[in-house]
């Protein structure tokens, strides 16, 4: 009934699969190590005091820095957070605490859908809604970035709150504490580490976004000049500098990439250690 060499064939297939699985893992991780290596290797020569205190150099000018971009990025992220965090937090609370509500299922689903909308589209949306009326501005960029932030915060807050056991809520409710106070004082407090984690991860994400920034602010070479004007941005600078033919700008691109990757991966790593510390 059984072909004589069939078992051998099965074993060979098994070994081949084993190799393929580890080969895929290597192929997936090589880019990570290569990116880290190259960004550090090529970014370090760009780093000096001027890099942190001087604004973008003009074409042909030597030296210069990214101080204005760091300033602009912080302001833009800050404004985006002011819009995005409250909305995300309250939405997450709604989804977790009123999950039996019909609206919850719908919002949860479309929250996932929103998180899958390409960031360039969100940029075009902000362009249509804001840039066309008040012009390229920090406000437009922050609006776009906050839309990217909201689904991330909403989701992590919802998941964090759901981890707080039901009996803790019931205990508080049984004491006569109103439900909203239970949520704010007990559930949210209990989950605050995870909530902070979600917020930090969403900030890391928008710090690296460049497509929506491009279509809402464009490239800005100077210092911050008001919320209704554009501001410089680190992630976008990398794009502009890299696509330019000027050697000095390309060096600055790698330097900016180093700063950005330290910020983004730093937040990610810190958050992981932070979460693991709980257990």
């Amino acid at each position: 009934m059984r072909k004589p060499n069939y078992y051998k064939l099965r074993l060979i297939k098994d070994r081949v699969m084993f190799l393929l699985v580890y080969l895929s893992l290597a192929l997936a991780l090589i880019p990570l190590f290569s990116i880290l290596y190259e960004v550090v290797q090529r970014g370090i020569p760009a780093i000096n005091l001027d890099f942190f205190i001087k604004p973008t150099p003009t074409v042909g000018e030597k030296g210069g820095g990214v101080a204005n971009a760091i300033q602009g990025t912080l302001i833009t992220i800050g404004l985006a957070s002011v819009i995005g965090i409250p909305v995300g937090l309250m939405s997450g609370i709604f989804l977790s605490e009123y999950s039996e509500h019909k609206l919850s299922t719908i919002i949860r689903f479309f929250n996932d859908v929103l998180s899958g909308v390409p960031s360039i589209i969100i940029g075009v949306f902000a362009y249509a809604l804001i840039v066309r009326s008040i012009g390229f501005s920090v406000i437009a960029a922050a609006f776009a970035l906050s839309i990217i932030m909201i689904p991330i915060v909403t989701r992590t807050v919802e998941e964090a709150l759901k981890l707080i056991p039901m009996n803790i809520r019931e205990a508080a409710i049984a004491l006569g504490v109103p439900r909203w106070k239970t949520v704010v004082a007990i559930v949210l407090r209990g989950a605050r580490k995870a909530v902070v984690t979600g917020i930090l991860l969403s900030i890391a994400r928008i710090a690296g976004e460049s497509a929506p920034v491009l279509v809402t602010m464009g490239f800005w070479r100077w210092w911050f000049a008001g919320l209704d004007r554009p501001a410089a941005n680190l992630a976008l600078n990398i794009f502009i500098f890299a696509m330019s033919p000027f050697e000095n700008w390309i060096v600055l691109a790698w330097g900016s990439a180093l700063i950005l990757i330290l910020l983004v991966l730093g937040i990610n790593i810190a958050v992981r250690i932070f979460i693991r510390g709980r257990y």
């Binding site: 059984r2 072909k3 064939l9």
Partner: peptide, 10 residues
């Protein structure tokens, strides 16, 4: 099926 028996009758 793991052992390669494919013959429908058997």
């Amino acid at each position: 099926k793991l052992n390669g028996v494919r013959d429908k009758k058997s």
